[in-house]
Design a protein around this nucleic acid. Structure first.
Lengths: 224, 224
DNA sequence: TAGATTGTTAATCGATTAACAATC
DNA sequence: TAGATTGTTAATCGATTAACAATC
């Protein structure tokens, strides 16, 4: 199981639980800022996220986001504080390894730009794919992984290869200097100390849905 | 924030925290079963998942998976118990709404089959896409969403539309009888009581990675 | 047998919530 | 002012871990 949060920096004292909520706060802030709202109260945040109002205030206090009485928290400040804390203004360059459906979808996804994630290349081992174009990218041979990582000092790879190749690709990338792996394969990767793996187990999401759907069909019977 | 686990059924007493670990246990069981292993100890599980050994044993006890002294837990039993608990043997039919890159990637992904998830259709609102083929699917008009949900008693939709359409599509699907939404859009959806939303915030994963990479570049300085 | 391992209870730790003072 | 709201402390709740007995 990956650690919920990476090793904490010395500054703010953010608990793992609070850390996990940051993306949600950020998303709400972006959305509301986009429609011109200036302030949001802990009550409204708590209703959207379905958590306790006090918890929201504690989270804000921990993030050193100060609210205003009667108004709530300034949305733009909130968004910026979170971005600053997470380092989202700095550009993070990443290579995608695996040019299957998912790899391509991630390469072409525009939603990463506002967060500083820049995809600098797309690699695969299939000769049929190498040399083809995926949007602005030319698919490169996975044999060039180590040299590209070294030359461009890439710190992050996005792993969308088949399960059978996941560990090997990781080992090569880590040996070449990669410090973090965004793992979309259903594999628990082994990595040395100091390398961070974030597992994106897509099937985990389905499992919770399956559980829920099974419960309701039991409770409500088989009929309409 | 979506509830971590759906409303519990009356049987086993699984905590939210244990529930969250089930997909990981399941994945390890599948992998090890695939290479012919029969048993796995709590120690080995704890090392793979990087959690405490006692916690693994408590999880197994809660799941009513009994181990054998000196051997550990029978892997196949473990996998089956989890599948049974989560309802993964029963087929769950789902519609994908949004035939963009991600929607297509999910439609063509083969990893869902072993878990009972069957994609029965792919919908979009773009006249250019409607009628085209995506693997075995013909992209259908999103205007048919309600009628398809009703006719086939679809309980789950997979949402890969643009953010701006997410709430509207959800409302239509829920009104037609959908009970669960697998939400891949960066939106906090509003749904009535009794409808379960699982948010797959892809950017949340990147945020934890960004934080980690920023921390190490601070700690290790700018030099090589 | 000794060693490896499970299973359980009690202690600890961390996260959430209730209560309430402060203040715009 | 009264009402709405933040911010903080103490109490509670839930999850993890330590300790250890049981047993193959």
């Amino acid at each position: 199981m990956e650690p919920v949060s990476p090793p904490p920096k010395a500054d703010k004292n953010i608990s793992k639980a609070t850390f996990r909520r940051l993306p949600h706060y950020h998303q709400i802030a972006s959305t509301y800022e986009g429609i011109g709202r200036k302030y949001i109260s802990s009550k409204e945040l708590s209703q959207i996220l379905q958590i306790n109002e006090t918890l929201v205030r504690k989270d804000m206090a921990d993030l050193e986001i100060r609210g205003r009485q009667n108004l709530g928290y300034e949305i733009q400040t909130m968004r910026k504080m979170i971005e600053d804390y997470l380092g989202l203004q700095e550009i993070t360059e990443a290579l995608i390894v695996g040019a299957g459906h998912l790899g391509k979808a991630l390469a072409l996804y525009h939603g990463f730009e506002p967060y500083g994630l820049r995809i600098v290349g797309l690699l695969d081992n299939d000769p049929e794919k190498i040399g083809t174009s995926v949007g602005p990218y030319e698919v490169l041979s996975v044999f060039r992984l180590a040299s590209i990582v070294e030359r461009h000092r890439i710190k992050l790879i996005i792993l969308t290869v088949p399960k059978s190749a996941a560990q090997e690709v990781t080992d090569i990338a880590v040996a070449a200097g990669v410090r973090a792996v965004w793992n979309f394969t259903p594999t628990e990767l082994r990595v040395p100390e100091g390398v961070y793996v974030r597992n994106e187990q897509i099937i985990a999401g389905f499992m919770t849905l399956s559980y829920f759907l099974k419960s309701i069909s039991e409770n409500e019977g088989a009929g309409k």
